[in-house]
Computed example of a mutant assay.
Amino acid sequence: MINSTSNRQVKRVADLRGKAKVRREEGMFVAEGLRMCRELSPGEVDTLFVTEDFQKDRENRRWLTHFQYETVTDVVMKSMADTQSPQGVLAIVRQRNYSLEDILSTPLKQALLILETLQDPGNLGTILRAGEGAGITGVIMNRETADIYNPKVIRSTMGSILRVPFVYVEDLKPACEVIKREGVRLFAAHLKGMNNYDQEDYTDNVGFLIGNEARGLTEETAALADAYVKIPMAGRVESLNAAIAASVLMFEAARQRRNKWFPSG
């Protein structure tokens, strides 16, 4: 049993949790909590840590038969975890690797999110979680976007990071050109939009461009859009949070597709 917070493995978890550079160099990230860890296959897990109390539960013991694991004290688990009340299970996990080609090869109608320099980990995590709910087929981000393996992102995705494909690209412009050549029409929420967002047709292959929380899309990236749309505001609100705006667009696409493919009556 590991009972010291100065243990080498415990320090490794702390480094992976706190430093994006270490996560990139090792190709690992930290996942915690029963819901998240139970979605992991043994091949994805580098190291699994559990407490004695966690092992007392019969269902947990049955699940653990598929893994090799380290037992740690409650104090050590609390030092490794990023939450105030850890659930007694935490894993070092191998990062997923997707390419733009992987995302574009889906047989489904595309519903892509293209993110430019989003900085808030909570926004990024919310976008992945809401995106899965809306049926998006992939997320494309520039390198300046927050690290998707940040613990705050991982936690706020509620497991969607394991199910939604994503990729970072060096430059959004050539990536968007490839996407458009594949027949995907790009939309940007923009103050210059001629139509409200719900007046456009999203039932074919579409992608939504979402910009930085404070500055929005750069002119260069906005120019890649085939159409600008606006989300009408009541009151004195000028714009929406990036994650909310992305959710509005994604769920409108989902609504239109349901109505087209599964009309009521």
Score class of each variant (00 low, 15 high):
Ala81Ile: 10
Gln84Ile: 05
Gln84Glu: 13
Gln84Ser: 13
Pro86Met: 10
Pro86Trp: 12
Gln87Leu: 12
Gly88Ile: 01
Leu90Gln: 00
Ala91Thr: 10
Ile92Phe: 09
Val93Thr: 07
Arg94His: 14
Arg94Tyr: 12
Arg94Leu: 05
Gln95Phe: 02
Asn97Ser: 15
Asn97Tyr: 11
Tyr98Lys: 03
Tyr98Arg: 08
Tyr98Gly: 05
Ser99Trp: 06
Glu101Lys: 07
Thr106Gly: 13
Thr106Asp: 10
Glu116Met: 03
Glu116Leu: 04
Glu116Ile: 05
Leu118Lys: 02
Gln119Val: 08
Asp120Pro: 04
Gly122Val: 07
Asn123Pro: 14
Asn123Asp: 06
Leu124Lys: 05
Thr126Phe: 01
Gly131Val: 00
Ala134Thr: 04
Ile136Cys: 06
Thr137Asn: 10
Val139Gly: 11
Val139Trp: 08
Val139Phe: 10
Ile140Gly: 01
Ile140Thr: 07
Arg143Ile: 08
Arg143Asn: 13
Thr145Asn: 02
Ala146Tyr: 02
Ile148Met: 04
Tyr149Thr: 09
Tyr149Met: 01
Pro151Thr: 02
Ile154Leu: 03
Arg155Val: 12
Arg155Cys: 07
Met158Val: 14
Leu162Arg: 06
Leu162Phe: 13
Val164Phe: 10
Val167Ser: 08
Val169Trp: 02
Glu170Thr: 11
Asp171Gln: 15
Asp171Asn: 15
Leu172Val: 14
Leu172Gln: 11
Lys173Phe: 05
Pro174Gly: 11
Pro174His: 06
Ala175Val: 05
Cys176Gly: 08
Glu177Cys: 10
Glu177Met: 15
Val178Ile: 15
Ile179Lys: 03
Lys180His: 04
Lys180Gln: 15
Glu182Ala: 15
Gly183Phe: 09
Leu186Ile: 07
Leu186Glu: 03
